[in-house]
Design a protein around this nucleic acid. Structure first.
Lengths: 252, 252
DNA sequence: GATCATAGTCGTCTGCCTGACGATAAACAC
DNA sequence: GTGTTTATCGTCAGGCAGACGACTATGATC
């Protein structure tokens, strides 16, 4: 590794965010509308430049706060301070991914409970939650019948990678609780799995599995009927982060 | 995401490589000795600057070839052309990780079969395979009694992350075959798992498991006695990349 | 050449986990 | 009350993993 200063080309470094949540039983991602070229008017993932004195995770947490108002979860802090889970996803550095200059983007994945309304610098019309299938379908028509343009830059690929990471990670970790409010029921947690995986799960087996995994759920003592039906026990996320044995995703 | 050219600080972008192999029943990583400050004379992970017209994975493959002579496995190509498995690991961008300038390093993980001898620009004394525990122990004494200096920069953390990735990934993927030559026996594959995980596995249960997983192993018809004992069947890696159900790593 | 050490391969048994699904409980709507 | 919805407990069969016995086929040693 030689550091002759003339030997390396300068790069711009950004962080892009795949912010996922579950709304109305479907997996949604945050998208912001680009206000300037290139890809002006198209939807893109939120993100921005890493500052000179910032760590990558700091930059991601700052962007997350700016775009969504969410505080990032300090990984060293105890669970569930209502902050979002934030982790590095992957880095994208194709020379042509930005037409203007060489940009390397360190994508991060954020998982958040369902939130009121997005804000992008206070302008709600330029930020929204959209179902990931809608954002990923190339040039189809959205739910409202409007034609859908693909995401700007290589953001469709980044989003797809983030969704895949989330889908696989809730199998063997307790990360699905990051989509839930601080207190939640087994049924709400099951609906998270169903939305993220896009499958239906047996409520009885799911209940047995999650309540039988030590450290996954801690009962708070309270109950709720906010989902209708018989009152359900409320739980908080337990200390366990790795599930062993894992949740099994039904095939196909 | 605004692109005011005056708004972003310039970064240097490098790739660092965690190259792992299994030698003499222990997990080893490639280390190179630094020829210049900072950390002159200390061991470090191989790596170098990303060039202006290079993708990140291209840069990693180029560095891998330069430092080890290994060709990287094109992920789109069929398995086992004797190239190494190469994947992106994570990106490290702490503002202080390099004392001279702002460097963001995109670390990659490479898995290779046991190789003859390393070469770093043809100079063997400046590159070696070392057991990962030896490289990761901070300021202890190596097997030869010499004091061990920690790896340069944040490379100990990068190596630890790479080792952890490899340990977990061989659980649910067929990646352990990347440590094996094109043809190998069940026992050789088992010794890979034992070296990477640092545990002993039951040869009978292991044999049942790997030969019973569809697509994991394909018999070549040949046999070998290179390990002594009764001749063992030779296998190639099958097409399967994901193991379902996974290999189970014994707890502690 | 018999014996031993080493590896490989095939079976058996038991316990645990999962998927399928029946049954009951506790709320709300009418 | 009746029906609907959701939650929760139980049962049962099949599959897989861990523990481990038994046998096989080579090379090494005496």
């Amino acid at each position: 590794m030689s550091y002759d200063p003339s030997a390396f080309p300068p790069f711009a470094v950004t962080v892009d965010l795949v912010v996922l949540t579950v709304r109305r039983h479907s997996l949604c991602a945050m998208a912001v509308r680009r206000g300037e070229p290139p890809f002006q008017g198209r939807w893109a993932l939120p993100g921005g430049f890493v500052r000179a004195d910032e760590d990558l995770s700091q930059a991601a947490a700052r962007e997350l706060a700016e775009e969504t108002g969410l505080r990032a979860h300090d990984p060293s802090a105890p669970a569930q301070d209502n902050g979002a889970h934030l982790e590095q996803l992957a880095t994208y550095g194709d020379p042509d991914r930005d037409p203007r200059m060489r940009v390397v983007s360190v994508a991060h994945l954020a998982l958040a409970p369902d939130l009121p309304a997005p804000r992008a610098g206070g302008d709600a019309s330029n930020a929204r939650w959209a179902p990931v299938e809608e954002l990923l379908q190339q040039g189809g028509y959205g739910r409202d019948g409007e034609p859908v343009a693909p995401l700007a830059f290589d953001h469709a690929r980044i989003l797809a990678d983030g969704v895949e990471r989330a889908r696989s990670k809730i199998e063997y970790s307790s990360l699905a609780t990051a989509f839930c409010p601080p207190e939640f029921t087994v049924g709400e947690l099951r609906r998270v799995y169903e939305a993220v995986w896009g499958v239906a799960l047996d409520p009885r087996n799911f209940h047995r599995k999650v309540t039988g995994t030590p450290g996954f759920l801690v009962p708070t003592g309270g109950t709720t009927t906010r989902q209708g039906g018989r009152p359900a026990q409320l739980f908080r996320a337990g200390g366990a982060t790795l599930l062993n044995p894992p949740m099994l995703r039904p095939e196909v």
